[in-house]
Nucleic acid binder design. Structure first.
Lengths: 331, 331
DNA sequence: CTGAAAGCGCTTACAG
DNA sequence: CTGAAAGCGCTTACAG
């Protein structure tokens, strides 16, 4: 592997000049530049980024952490994130926590050891305490979830409105016993969607019953239990809203194998809008989140923070809402 | 951000000693070590990996490139890869090509600029020419696909056997007009599976018809076209093998919406064994690939190459086959 | 057991 | 327009 020194010698210039050519400094004379460029090509020289990073005290790398990658929900976000990083000539490291704290710590360590300049936490990949601890020292953007009382940039959809719209649609179809299968009950997105749900019920004069709400992870057994829990209380269900397409697909699976006692054509609206909602039978009506854009925008905002060191604190902080829409399918 | 220098001053030792403590050099006196450790904690010091990387001429980072992440097939492989990297204290950068050459080039550039020490190419994320070009200069492992004539380490399943078993199973059920929807026809996995398919047909005395084979990408329109292409030739189909669960799910979708003229209960066996095959209706019989292990083993092999510089060339090269199995479901 | 010093391969302020 | 030199923050061979 040839170094800048060898290039300099070969081209009869100083390493400073080679460096300038490498960085497109307009100050170097075209003739010199061409000579250097030719030698670089000849020697097949590639700068050592390890050295450049140290010298510039910058890795031009950011990290995005996701809870997992098995749900296509996250892979779409990751896809957008990757694109934004490329568009800004940053490297991006995408990591999945898999509910393991030590994995999360590995990524945070990259921040602390200068390997990464900033981080995007997607969904509930970080808790409030950790976030508070990291916030004043590092550049952080949240994606899809925020923490009330913490003034961090967060990119998400208008979950309250989306919850309202989903509920409204089911009511329009004549449903009046609408169950709600949520994700993590503490999360901001769940809280907001439930608010919208309540509002729509109220508008329609339907009494709100907290026991029609149950939380579940993105696992078949969890979802089955949650739905059966509601049914088991003797509560009728003629409509369901779920926190994710995956949950909705599990409900369909349960209905089909008769482990969930619901009619096959139950009114159901899920969140996310991944391709999962299209391959089930029946296909699922869903609130489509702009997943790619959520990822893209999160990373873009983070890079803005990185570049724009001078911006006064708090200027860019706050909630950034991206538009969602509903796609009506068979459920 | 405090540096090793400040720690040294505070602890009344040289930077050399601090460095030794940091690297657990057993030579330092316990008393000194404790003193340094205390100061490190007090100052909340974290070593700058940018400096360490340059000094050691090693990034302890590898990259894995995947065609995309939308198929859970790839996310499982990535999950295993991530685990293997952690287990060996390596950083891993997982990137998805999305069919864009310039994205691939970005990752290869990380190799060339010392940001990464080795690379795993999953599926057909690299072509033969590029691979040949990179092979003698960089540490490379292939995952799920290999290139005949190129002596690179490749971790995969025994595709020929798997193709044979899938075909055999359909024949056992009485199918004799078995269509084969493949992925990229040039790929080693497709070639091998087709070989197994032919062998099973031959054994059963069923004539092999190349026009029962059609390639398709993991997209609904492609798969639909492929199946309809075979049907359009007037060829009956009473069984199908697909290259992926995703393709199989698309066929079910096509059957249901009647854009594919096949009976609802067609005998079908897919490859991969992702959760997709469980959420469809009917659920799909599938050849389960050890995806997590494929990812894990690929990375592990790569790291072995990295660590074991001394190993004579070629020693570790060659095909590593991991076991697969069939899961019978409703199709 | 510890320290002084060289050096990893770059960038950049400074001088000319 | 170009070069000499300092320095980014570490590690490690060498000397003691």
């Amino acid at each position: 592997m040839s170094s800048i020194k060898e290039v300099a010698k070969q081209a009869n210039v100083s390493v400073a000049t080679v460096s300038r050519v490498l960085n497109n400094d307009p100050v170097v004379k075209p003739a010199t530049k061409n000579k250097v460029l030719r030698v670089i090509k000849e020697m097949n020289y590639k700068p050592n980024m390890l050295a450049k990073n140290l010298r510039k005290q910058a890795s031009r790398t950011i990290v995005m952490v996701l809870p997992s990658m098995s749900n296509p929900y996250f892979s779409e976000i990751a896809r957008g994130a990757q694109a934004a990083a490329y568009d800004n000539a940053y490297n991006i490291i995408i990591g999945t926590i898999e509910s393991k704290r030590w994995i999360l710590d590995t990524y945070i360590n990259m921040l602390k050891t200068n390997l990464a300049e900033g981080i995007v936490f997607v969904s509930s990949s970080v808790n409030k305490e950790l976030l508070e601890e990291l916030m004043d020292e590092y550049k952080i953007v949240l994606c899809t979830e925020y923490y009330p009382g913490i003034n961090a940039t967060c990119v998400a959809i208008d979950n309250k409105r989306a919850g309202y719209e989903a509920t409204k649609e089911l009511i329009r179809r004549g449903c009046s016993h609408i169950a709600y299968i949520t994700g993590n009950r503490e999360s901001s997105s769940v809280t907001a969607r439930i608010e919208g749900y309540k509002e729509a019920l109220k508008e329609a004069g339907i009494p709100y019953r907290p026991d029609r709400i149950a939380g579940a992870k993105n696992r078949f057994d969890h979802v089955k239990e949650a739905v059966n829990g509601i049914i088991g209380q003797g509560l009728p269900i003629d409509g369901i809203i779920t926190h994710s397409d995956l949950q909705a697909s599990y409900i369909l699976k349960g209905i089909k194998e008769k482990s969930i006692a619901l009619p096959e054509r139950v009114g159901m609206i899920s969140f996310d809008g991944t391709f999962l909602a299209e391959i089930t039978n029946p296909t699922i009506t869903t609130i489509v989140q702009p997943l790619y854009d959520l990822g893209y925008t999160s990373v873009h905002k983070l890079i803005l923070k990185l570049v724009n060191e001078s911006a006064e604190a708090g200027e860019e902080e706050g909630l950034v809402l991206l538009p969602h829409h509903m796609v009506i399918r068979e459920t």
